[in-house]
Structures are given as C-alpha cells and as structure tokens.
Amino acid sequence: MRGSREKPIAEEGAEVSYRSLAFPGVLARMRSVPKPVVLDLGPALGSNLHALEHLGPRIYIADILSMADEELPLERAHAKSTGKQFWRWLFRNRPHERLDVILAWDLLNYLTLDEIRILIEDLQPHVVPGTLLFAVIAQGKEIPRTPPPYAIRSGSILVPQGQSPGQAPAPRYREPELRRALPGFVVDASYLLRSGLQEYLFAYRPEEEAPASEALEPASAGD
C-alpha cells in the first residue's frame, strides 16, 4: 500500500511538484459540464483560479482550516453546528447548488475520521450522483504540520506550496476507513505515488456503495 520514499519531481528551483494521476479526472469532469461547480476546501490561490479559468467554473472557496481557526475557537466538537452555519452562508445565494467537484487536496489528513464524516454530512445537500471528491492521503509516517496549499500547474502538475515549520504524524487513512467516513462515495480511482502520497478520486454513487460490513476494517495504526 505504501510507496517508496522517492521524492517528487522538482521544478523551478525550490518548488517541488508532482504529476497527479487523479487530477486529470477532475478536469475531465469539469470539461463535461457547461458550467462546472467546484468546492475548494483549501485556501484561495490566484494561480488555481487562473488554471481553471478557461473552464468557466463557479468556484466556492471554503478554506476550512482557516474556518476552524477563525470561527471555531472552541473545541472541534463544536464543528458540526458551526460548520453547518458556514455552509449555509457559503451557499446562501444558491441554496440548491449542486457540486460537480470537491477539492479536498490533502486536508483530510488534518481531520479526524469523525470530522471528515461530519464535513460530508454537512455538504450532503449539495452532493449529487456524480460529484467527485479529489483527495491526497499521506501514506508516509509524517505530514507537514500545516497543510500546504496545492497549486495547479499545467493541468496535471500539482505543486504543494510553502514550507511547513515542522512535521506531524500522518494518520495514514486506509481506503475502508475513508469509505466509512465518506458515506455514499465510492472509489472511482486511486493511485499510490512513489512519494508516499495516495491520490483518490471518490465519486458520489450511493447506489453502488459497498455494504457497511465491508468497510468495517479495523482502524489503521501507524508503524
């Protein structure tokens, strides 16, 4: 399940980029609809707007970890109600908005499985059959202490931005755990990269969801 410790390809000096295998699926989905609707759970990056501009999308930028910092000063246990309030605000002009794509980048590594489940439950009104969720799950032992924003370069080239001040243990979520935390989503594609990153493209297809018993694999433990 785990890749080797080979570093991602380096480009443009200090920038470290890698060729995503799952992200082209996101782009294909966006091309397949006249006005793609995208929810970016990460922070706003001008370069990403520029990269997706030609597809004429409507992009919702949630910046959820910033939301946690600024709007959830209490314990994360309060995330559910406050989170719902945030989503109501975000979609206030289009309460029936339906998402084509959710860009989670590597943010799921920074949430507990319960938090992931709550997040997806809160987004349920905006998820429809076919909604894609793009996620990068670290399978190595450590992740940057703060999540690096991901910049899109040249279609399938992704560049994690910035230098984190340190490392933190990676939760190393396994597929069954993620499927439990993402009710209604099935794995449309999954690629383990040599860098230790596992890219997932989940698709919301509740009718194909595996029975819960299949997803009851014990939680993974770090090495």
């Binding site: 890749g3 991602p8 890698y18 339906r98 429809v128 076919g130 594609a189 999954s190 690629y191 990269l193």
Partner: peptide
Amino acid sequence: KSPQKGTPSASPDAQAKGSIPPSDAAASGR
C-alpha cells in the same frame, strides 16, 4: 441543472491528457 449534472462522472482520463512518467506511479494505481 442540466441532465448531465446528475449522471455518473466521467472516468478519469489521465492517460488521454498526456503521458504519465512511470516514475510517479507505483504499481498499485488502479
């Protein structure tokens, strides 16, 4: 939304959009 919004997603077409260096993908890509 238009009907295609509710249809299952197009499958990823990474291979169709450009070559993928084998060095980036481990054997378990599926």
